[in-house]
Design a binder for these strands. Structure first.
Lengths: 216, 216
DNA sequence: GTCTATAAATCGATAGAC
DNA sequence: GTCTATCGATTTATAGAC
């Protein structure tokens, strides 16, 4: 409880104020609308001061990105409670897309902006370090597929990693298309997601002999 | 062959030069890198001159967008030759995504930029005018689903429009995720597309009774 | 630690000379 | 029809006073 501690505390507080102001701007107007001047106005400090707390604008973006990723994970964690592997996979698709629909600017920042921020979440090279938050969350989906295969809910062939990337990209498509070209889709986005997950899971559950076309 | 005609010809030529220069910039560096100054430098005219041929930067973007859409349609038309409705649907997914992979900046301009350009392709309100190029191309996919249903290749229930939007958004997901976060996906994008189309079509072909879970 | 002031670089768009 | 010149408004980031 000395002077040094107080200074550190105050420094951390202002840093948090900067992030809070930046988060509000990004959530309201998108990342490209985030400027040092706006942050300075919001926290009632000169723009120059911000550079004493963050290297540059990108560093703020990276930090916001990491926090938004935690937000996404918070959306997904309840799915872990679902025992039925088939329903768990459906829940993953639903929760992931719901995060996007309900937090459009956060989703934009995470997955629709320059990949520079993503790289902070995923390993820069192919280390696949399980400590990376992105890798950890993705592994959750992979495990769900593995469990579904083990339980016989879906076909045992097929690389779980590839399957996870397949549903991830497909779900991303519904969200990103909805966010970019809102009024173009005639069908309700949530209905598309449900149809998509159902169709994919049914396609994976199908015994190979039951398809209409067997050859040619 | 009078003076008036020559002037009109020259005017059209310069207009085309502007578009060619703009197209090259957008294809190389993306739409946000397109500036009137760069165009002026490229065609060796003052930036001010460009405003005599296009209202503003957005008008150039709209024109480029329309041309890129024709490019996309050129990728898709060969699929019309495929008689087998099941294979035609697979071909649609493959050709659509191939356009995106091979023409990333055009794809970005069409489907990953401000919706202002899309609106030039799709009806501004819900008129669904079949003359709109976007509506026309989308109808092509809808018709493919209708044909597949009629031929018994996929289940007869399910709105063809919703099905078309489902595969469209799913394919869009693979392309946009690949373009935005290239190195994040472990699986080859083309492999994801194939797996996705196969799985979806198999899911649609499945008789309802053959799924693993029948109730609960 | 914070500020003012400013550098240095953009940009879109326009007025007016020629 | 084209140009020069410029307005006016951005931006990020920094130098240096206090």
């Amino acid at each position: 409880m000395g002077i040094v501690e107080r200074k550190e505390r105050q420094r951390a507080e202002l840093r948090e104020q900067i992030l809070t102001a930046a988060r509000r701007i990004v959530l309201d107007e998108g990342f490209e609308a985030l400027t040092m001047r706006k942050i300075g106005d919001a926290i009632e400090y000169s723009p120059a001061t911000i550079y004493l707390y963050f290297e540059n604008r990108e560093a703020i973006g990276r930090q916001l990105c990491a926090e938004s990723f935690e937000h996404l994970i918070a959306y997904m964690t309840p799915v872990g409670q679902i025992a039925d592997p088939y329903e768990r996979l459906r829940g993953i698709g639903r929760c992931y897309t719901r995060f996007g629909f309900e937090n459009p600017e956060e989703y934009r920042l995470l997955f629709m902006t320059d990949p520079a921020f993503m790289e902070a979440l995923f390993p820069p090279d192919n280390t696949a370090d399980p400590k990376d938050p992105g890798e950890r969350a993705f592994q959750f989906v992979v495990d769900a597929f593995r469990a579904a295969q083990a339980a016989g809910a879906i076909r045992p062939d097929g690389d779980p990693v590839a399957l996870a990337e397949m549903v991830w990209t497909a779900c991303h498509g519904v969200v990103s298309m909805t966010l970019t070209c809102n009024h173009v889709l005639e069908t309700r986005p949530e209905a598309i997601v449900d149809m998509l997950c159902d169709t994919i899971l049914r396609g994976l559950a199908t015994p190979l002999t039951s398809t209409v076309r067997s050859a040619s």
